[in-house]
Write a protein that binds this DNA or RNA. Structure first.
Lengths: 338, 338
DNA sequence: CTGAAAGCGCTTACAG
DNA sequence: CTGAAAGCGCTTACAG
């Protein structure tokens, strides 16, 4: 028990004893067993993290941010759902069995059993990558619906009128609820402007990436050859669409403007650079980590349950005006909302 | 203890008792505490995974493969080193404290303390993403040196002679030992062919990605304007180099051929598609997972300590011959080695 | 087939 | 400032 004290807080042990213990630890290569420690102290220092996939630079950034903000004393327990609600339920159950002190979920959060388990877990639950007004417990994110609206508003502000959006199928099981919210925001904005809903193309299943964007663009160019502006629900998909245009000799942004989402490094480094909606992916992780540490230490009760980190429109090389812009709305940025 | 039996193996409990237990479990929402279970059974069912970074699609693929092969009963404990050996040591120590049953390391594996801890851990250690002839314990990967040689051989076979390779600085801490091995293999091949070592440009620090490739290419085009072929140590870097060429109006592959490494989805979907060296990133994870399960169950002792999954040259749109190809070596594939 | 006992390796009070 | 005792919630033999 004295060893335990030396390792936990050396200052409360007499210098001479401390030295003796340290020497023994060194010689034996003693590494304390945190499994036993966790059981005894009822603190595992685990934080569970549930993501749809890790092959998405945004989610990778979020988990890096979370790991950094939690610091060395907490260990992340990561699981992937592949956008499947059944898999998510299995994952929540097995993570909870490890007795994490908090659970961070960017999954689809669907089955009733999942919700019940989360509610009854007795630990802080943080839903990330969306900012619902009434989260299960807490939320850190932004409004995906607003992101879709902002994309539409930007394309409209350039004078473009024949618009489309590409995402994945919404009513199947793997499915991407956040991407769907962006599509709906996009359609809603067009409706507000009284120009129909545009063409909302739900193609293939989540997760969407390069190949998805290329395939969807191929379909779109065939069925709507005069399309002027396209919003893809992720930068990966936007990149695929851009490459498909290049293959078909369709000029971007000359003939069609393309707008992505997520501000991936890929889009910044691409030539032309991809116009996008920036979200602070790493910041979502960092903010979540800080919130959890507060909650673990009994602080943070006054933090609002839903934290909205906002979005920002970033116009770059893949969008351009038609010349006939009769724009009422010239803003290129949503700014920060909270 | 009967509850424990029902949950572990229902068949050994009388049907009636079993039913009673199941009903109670259901009603109470009982989730067994694996922390206590682990301590008692001395099996945590944890597998530690140490990666340089998750923001690299290859490593993300490897971890997905590993997770799938290990299956539901094992939980991955993931840590990032950011290519820093000190961070790696800290990570190994804290992972070992969780008493994993196996440890998978794609880190840089540098400090003496790290090696000592790994040797004394008493669990299977699998080094991945390289296949050294004498691993610490076991290894699953391929030869990075051979990958570099293969890249050089491919560029030479196209008749290109003014060659260069771009990677990151080798003698600092963060540094990428596997990327460096590729550079050295590249230089070695050129030497074998008696045409010097080419220009080996070690620029910036690991990890290398899009922006790195662009910056390195900028430097290279300035100091070696007549360069004919470039090997980048990752497809991310190759993509950045390709974009930089486009910005500067340098035709690829017309004026300069570019070759990457890793066969990222990005390179396949890019236009022109990036010539690369394919490694089976997900397969490395899968193979490692299967090996670990064998070892956990007392099998797999006869498996060779070092498993080489081989590499394959994949010529695509960013490399083309000069016309003056006096190639002795037309092979476009390394095939599978073991 | 089921239950009582011991113990996994720590931490947390509690004495001294 | 340091040590002896109890206990965290399971699993593993061992009896019955």
């Amino acid at each position: 028990m004295t060893v335990s004290r030396v390792l936990a807080d050396p200052s409360i042990v007499a210098p001479e004893t401390r030295e003796r213990v340290m020497r023994a630890v060194e010689q034996l290569g003693y590494v304390p067993d945190l499994v036993a420690g966790s059981l005894s102290s009822r603190r595992t220092n685990f934080v569970g993290l549930i993501l749809p996939t890790l092959t998405n630079s945004n989610f990778a950034d979020t988990s890096q941010g979370l790991a950094e903000a939690l610091g060395q004393s907490y260990q992340l327990l990561i699981g992937y759902t592949l956008y499947d609600t059944g898999e998510e339920e299995r994952l929540v159950r097995s993570l909870l069995a490890r007795r994490p002190q908090g659970l961070v979920v960017a999954g689809t959060l669907h089955t009733a059993a999942t919700r019940r388990m989360l509610m009854n877990a007795g630990i802080p639950i943080v839903e990330i990558w969306d900012a619902p007004s009434a989260p299960l417990d807490r939320a850190v994110g932004f409004s995906n619906f607003e992101a879709g609206r902002a994309a539409a508003r930007h394309l409209l502000s350039l004078g473009l009128r024949r618009l489309a959006a590409i995402g994945s199928e919404a009513d199947k099981d793997p499915h991407d609820a956040r991407g769907e919210a962006r599509l709906q925001g996009f359609a809603a904005m067009l409706k507000e402007e009284g120009i129909g809903t545009g063409r909302i193309l739900r193609h293939g299943s989540a997760p969407v990436s390069y190949a998805h964007g290329a395939a969807a663009m191929r379909v779109l160019l065939k069925e709507m050859p005069d399309v002027e502006g396209v919003f893809a629900v992720s930068d990966g998909s936007a990149f695929g669409a851009l490459m498909e245009c290049r293959r078909q000799g369709v000029e971007v942004p000359g003939r069609v403007s393309i707008m992505g989402f997520g501000d991936f490094e890929l889009g910044r480094e691409c030539e032309p650079a991809i116009s996008t909606i920036r979200v602070d992916a790493k910041g979502i992780g960092t903010r979540t980590g800080l919130l959890l540490r507060d909650l673990f230490e009994g602080r943070g009760q006054e933090t609002p349950p839903s934290i909205d980190l906002g979005i920002e429109v970033v116009p770059r090389g893949t969008t351009a005006g038609t010349g006939r812009s009769h724009d009422r709305n010239q803003t290129s940025s949503e700014g920060r909302r909270s």
